[in-house]
């Protein structure tokens, strides 16, 4: 069972992605901010992290920084509202796999991009 961790402060977005991924057969873990998210990474050892950037407590980049510090090598896909080239370049330096601008993509496409990163869930 492939495990996906969603670190996202917006409840509606978090629930929508979570619902979709669950329907697809993924195990979904959720966290409502960066700080809790980082704890969940260590606790749940997910196969993929969907990470928001602008969040309270600890933002997405701080999470990436922490992961790098502690040598946690879990694939990350950024799901954010912004998408400035500088930000994307910065994220690439952390080895981020993909950057999804929420408003540019349908939910369906988000799911497809997630699947593309870790392959179909084993049923």
């Amino acid at each position: 069972m492939k495990k996906v961790l969603i670190i996202e402060d917006e409840k509606l977005v978090r629930n929508l992605i979570s619902k979709k991924l669950s329907e697809k057969g993924f195990v979904v873990e959720i966290a409502e901010n960066g700080k809790k998210g980082f704890q969940k990474i260590k606790e749940t050892e997910p196969d993929l992290i969907l990470l928001d950037i602008i969040m309270p407590e600890m933002n997405g980049f701080e999470v990436l920084e922490k992961m790098q510090e502690e040598n946690i090598e879990v694939p990350v896909v950024i799901v954010s509202n912004s998408g400035q080239p500088v930000e994307i370049d910065k994220a690439k330096e952390y080895g981020v796999r993909d950057w999804i601008v929420k408003t540019k993509f349908d939910l369906q496409e988000v799911i497809e991009k997630t699947v593309a990163q870790i392959g179909k869930p084993q049923k």
Partner: peptide, 10 residues
């Protein structure tokens, strides 16, 4: 934009 993406996907 944050709520708009939620609305969009809903």
């Amino acid at each position: 934009r944050t709520p708009l993406s939620g609305i969009k996907w809903t």
